[in-house]
């Protein structure tokens, strides 16, 4: 087990993908948080409350502005850890290194488990980078504009910390997803389309009806926000969330189900 784990960790450290992923996430989150923070503040000043731009004309108070900005990584940036996780599997198929991998360790469940565990430390670093981007960009902008940052608030600190947890869970979901869809380009495209388009749309649609409103809480993005305990969607009154630990279980559930499917399909077939 330790040998397989060391091999999988070395696979990540010997390529650039993980830190490029973290660097891009940091930069993206930094800019996004600055823009969002500034536009919320300007909106409050001109209208007395911040318009979210979302249906329903929901508004934000200053504390919600801060928490919405600090959880942008969970609401909009989880694609980064998800891709990090998916690449751990898909790059093996893209570069056909899955062959030497299975020659060195033919126990396929062990290979898959090692990949899942190996990605965790890197997912933590990438997630910290992303959350740091939102905090630096968001708090910096709020402070510059003379607004409270709420960074001393224990609840806010907890939300920020739990954002990292949510993003790390997304990396595990990514590993499972990569095991199911091994084509690297297809995996990234599907992840992008689902996280940036399908899920946001689904959540807005499902929230419109009482019968389906509960269902929307179990979507992976909503579960991630539940872990953080806050989000743009909640602040804007669009949706309720599960509790944090329920969110953890739901995301772990997605990861586990995808991993099992990947083990029974991709990792059971003939390789090559």
């Amino acid at each position: 087990m330790t040998a397989a784990l060391r091999t999988e960790i070395r696979k990540i450290t010997t390529t650039r993908a993980w830190w490029v992923n973290g660097a891009v996430m940091f930069a993206y989150m930094l800019v996004l948080a600055m823009i969002m923070a500034a536009s919320f503040v300007l909106s409050i000043r001109s209208e007395g409350s911040a318009s979210t731009g979302l249906p329903g004309g929901a508004t934000l108070d200053p504390e919600s502005v801060a928490s919405s900005v600090y959880t942008l990584a969970v609401a909009l940036g989880y694609i980064f850890p998800a891709v990090l996780g998916a690449l751990v599997v898909t790059s093996e198929f893209r570069h056909r290194t899955i062959t030497p991998t299975l020659l060195a360790e033919p126990r396929r469940s062990l290979v898959l488990t090692s990949k899942l565990l190996a990605v965790i430390p890197f997912a933590i670093l990438v997630s910290i980078a992303g959350v740091l981007g939102t905090v630096v960009g968001g708090a910096g902008t709020l402070a510059l504009m003379g607004e409270p940052t709420f960074l001393g608030d224990p609840d806010m600190v907890r939300t920020i910390g739990m954002s990292v947890v949510a993003l790390v869970l997304w990396a595990l979901v990514g590993v499972g997803f990569g095991a199911v869809l091994t084509n690297q380009v297809a995996a990234i495209v599907v992840l992008l389309v689902f996280t940036q388009f399908v899920e946001p749309l689904l959540r807005i649609l499902l929230a419109q009806f009482d019968a389906t409103e509960t269902l929307s809480k179990f979507l992976p993005g909503a579960a991630g926000e539940a872990v953080a305990g806050s989000s743009l969607y909640v602040s804007s009154g669009l949706a309720d969330l599960l509790t944090a630990w329920q969110g953890v279980l739901v995301l772990l559930g997605y990861a586990l189900v995808l991993l099992v499917i990947g083990r029974l399909t991709t990792f059971r077939r003939d390789i090559g």
Partner: peptide, 10 residues
């Protein structure tokens, strides 16, 4: 088994 089983970035 194959000549191309390498990650080009390694």
């Amino acid at each position: 088994l194959e000549t191309a089983s390498f990650h080009p970035g390694r």
